[in-house]
Design a protein around this nucleic acid. Structure first.
Lengths: 112, 112
DNA sequence: AAGTATACATAATTTTCTTATGCATAAGAA
DNA sequence: TTCTTATGCATAAGAAAATTATGTATACTT
């Protein structure tokens, strides 16, 4: 994630969330989808994305399937059953985290 | 920040924001304030906080002033003029970032 | 022919934490 | 009175997660 080196540690969660919604996606597609959703503000770098995908796969969260399209290889990733559970957990954790961050950034919210 | 190694990269912004609201604070006070605001969910470690404060000071964002209270030393930090501007910028960037993250986590928001 | 887009991957480096350690005083519990 | 917890600072070693740079390869556009 480029954008400005903010948030390190949310990339895996973003990937899991996208796969939760999409059944299967390949790496390049993920970078483009994120760029699209954030109107170009998040640019996920390959140097961050691929190691993250490989790690999630190694942990059993993702399964893969390669396809050849137009003579180019696409490696599709899908959530495993375990990956699905992990997606739920990670997204919930991140949302919780964001709520707390917002309390810090907007003190008035903390008073309610 | 303990809590779960989420968000790396937001600590300096949090510190700047707190100092924007408080005139002056010392390190230990910052850890306690964050803990209080987040109901114990963020625990800022000294190993993260002090180097961050030192760095911000070295960059001219913070000025310091030591006081002895009850025989214990407190090192108070305040925003410099430059630090005040930096606080504005960093907070705005983080908020922007959070909005984008929320679009990713809650796709329905992205469609509006 | 050169540049951009698509598509994967890895290595070196940097940033930013966590964990561990160290020093020191004060207050409360056992 | 001794041990633990709280207050208060600081730094060093190690880990985690990015960035940046590099490499390979095909396809499309200028």
């Amino acid at each position: 994630m480029s954008s400005s080196k903010l948030l390190k540690g949310s990339l895996a969660t973003i990937v899991l969330k996208l796969l939760e919604e999409n059944e299967k996606m390949y790496g390049y597609e993920i970078t483009q989808r994120v760029k699209e959703i954030t109107a170009g503000e998040f640019k996920i770098t390959e140097g961050a994305l691929y190691p993250t995908l490989h790690k999630l796969e190694a942990e059993g969260m993702l399964s893969t399937e390669t396809q050849k399209v137009d003579n180019r290889i696409r490696k599709y990733y899908s959530l495993t059953k375990e990956g699905n559970a992990e997606a739920q957990t990670k997204v919930a954790e991140l949302e919780e985290f964001l709520l707390n961050l917002q309390k810090l950034l907007n003190p008035k919210l903390g008073m309610g």
